[in-house]
Write a protein that binds this DNA or RNA. Structure first.
Length: 499
RNA sequence: GGCGCGUUGGUCAAGAGGCUAAGACACCGCCCUUUCACGGCGGUAACACGGGUUCGAUUCCCGUACGCGUCACCA
């Protein structure tokens, strides 16, 4: 029975890198990146970089049911776009490959058998879920496996095996209590009798997630296990596994969840945006990463804006919070506008161009448009609506001409437009400066507030109360002909409306 | 139900026995301004509750409440 080939295990062990931090991000290929996942990946990356260690990408694709075509590509693309470059992974290899779980399936059974030898596991021949109470309505039922197969004699096992009875391999939970230490939650102790003899190897010979994880983390030399706090409860079982093998236990860093509201995690099901969705919604990757870093972690000071390298610098495991954080899109908006404003005009122009073009076809000076947009844009997808008046003057109500602060009403506005018309017609040099000078000298001549003249002009040329840029910018971009035509129609509108 | 974890303003959060309990977002007001935005100034708003320990608790301990997680041959 002891057909265990120790040489093979020695070989596996000898591949494990020693000394130095190694972290891993181990997503399942589901086709998109949750915000919570992204944050876990980010923290995992930051810890590796912070301590000059290695950041490893491992694909946990053992669930064939949920396999989605192209999902692995999404992971690569997302990581790359976020700047979370891995040092080892399925695509680039490394010393402890393969890095895809389906390609490691042989390892797990061997280690499970080793564990049986070591007394940390046993074969269980009980059928699948032959629990007494299969009534699901009995919500509070505690169905704990009673561990009867762990008491089988050598001979009984022999016989069952010979008869070809199907079996699973279960973890043998010893008596006593288990204490483990988490870098976020501190020391946690549980009584072992609250732990179940979990299945390690399923009857089909494939490992359960819990087992595969421990084996892989060990064989890959992972020193810091970063994962969601939903694993806190099962960590004692992992610890017992490490102990049964005689392996060093890694450092644990359990992260609280990212919530959509006080009660629910962010989820695709509830329509919450994934990382990809946020991109589509017009958010910048850097802004998303920065914001997400601050959900459940605080650098302690007052600063909030950090680039990725800066995050590496200031990141501190002690700053990770124990309680969940609610994702607040309004705050993301703020980060996004900060990032947009911090960009150079050229960069912004390049980024905004498709959005500008989707709404403005007639004006060609996209740079001038980008310029008025630049400092007042929360997200890229807001752009088309802000610019829709350029191609076509919208229907508008003449009441827009009334503005207290500018001291305008309909009749004042009419006067302003009538005086502006010949001045505008007279401009040969239709540049921003040319329009500006002409209009401001008219202001002086009329002895009115700037706004008294400029408000009605802006309304006439845009038809909107709120526009990016002021009257001068809009007139300039619109061009002479279009500007004059819109002023004329404004005059007409006001004339027909006199009471 | 057992076990585990959590609880500072609407949200993110600092704080770590003695503070007028930071800061940011959002909101409101004022200023600036050619609208909005930006910027500047100011404002509303919080330690879940009850017991201890202590000269003194947001901070330490114990309960209670509420919430979350977990108890799969899913990851």
């Amino acid at each position: 029975m002891s057909s265990i080939n120790m040489a093979w295990f020695d070989e596996m062990e000898s591949r494990i890198p020693r000394g130095g931090v190694r972290t891993r991000f181990a997503p399942s290929p589901t086709g998109y990146m949750h915000v919570g996942n992204l944050r876990t990946a980010l923290y995992t990356y930051l810890i590796a970089r912070k301590y000059g260690g290695k950041f490893i990408l491992r694909i946990e694709d053992t669930d064939q049911e949920r396999y989605i075509d192209g999902a692995i590509d999404v992971i690569y693309k997302t990581m790359k776009k976020c700047g979370l470059a891995h040092d080892e992974g399925p695509d680039i290899g490394g010393p402890v490959g393969p890095y895809t779980q389906t390609q490691r399936r042989d390892f797990y059974l061997k280690y499970a058998e080793l564990l049986i030898e070591k007394g940390g596991a046993y074969r269980c021949f009980c059928g699948r879920d032959d629990a007494d109470d299969e009534d699901p309505s009995d919500e509070k039922a505690i169905k704990k496996y009673d561990g009867r197969c762990s008491r089988l004699s050598e001979r009984e096992i022999e016989e069952k095996l010979k008869s070809g009875a199907p079996y699973v391999i279960r973890q043998k939970i010893p008596e006593g209590k288990t204490t483990f230490s988490d870098m976020v939650f501190g020391e946690i102790t549980v009584e072992n009798d609250t732990l179940d003899d979990n299945v390690l190897i399923k009857s089909d010979g494939l490992p359960t997630y819990n087992f595969a994880n421990v084996i892989d983390d060990h064989l890959m030399g992972i020193t810091h296990v970063v994962r969601g706090s939903e694993y806190l409860s099962s960590t004692p079982k992992y610890n017992l596994l490490y102990k049964a093998f005689g392996w060093d236990v890694p450092n644990y860093i359990h992260c609280p969840p990212v919530m959509r509201d006080a009660h629910n995690k962010m989820s695709k099901r509830h329509g919450d945006p994934s990382y990809e969705d946020l991109l589509l919604l017009g958010y910048l990757s850097d802004a998303i990463v920065n914001y997400v870093a601050l959900l459940g972690w605080s650098p302690g000071g007052e600063r909030e804006i950090f680039t990725l390298p800066e995050l590496v610098d200031v990141f501190d495991i002690g700053g990770i919070s124990k309680s969940p954080a609610i994702f607040d899109i309004a705050k993301l908006n703020y980060f996004n506008s900060e990032y947009i404003r911090a960009m150079s005009l050229d960069d912004f122009h390049r980024l905004a161009l498709p959005y500008i073009k989707s709404s403005v076809k007639k004006c060609t000076d996209t740079m001038a448009i980008a310029e008025i947009l630049h400092q007042r844009c929360e997200k890229l997808t807001d752009i088309p609506d802000k610019l829709d008046f350029f191609d076509r003057l919208p229907e508008y109500d003449k009441s827009l001409y009334i503005n207290k602060k500018s001291k305008t009403d309909e009749s004042v506005s009419l006067k302003m437009l009538e005086s502006a018309l010949p001045v505008l017609e007279d401009i040969d040099d239709w540049t921003h400066e040319g329009v500006h000078n002409a209009l401001f000298s008219l202001v002086e001549k009329l002895e009115v507030k700037n706004a008294t003249l400029l408000w009605p002009i802006r309304i006439a040329v845009s038809g909107k109360a709120v526009t990016p840029g002021g009257a001068v910018e809009i007139c300039h971009i619109l061009g002479k002909e279009e500007t004059i035509s819109r002023i004329k129609s404004g005059i007409k509108k006001l004339n027909s409306a006199t009471h």
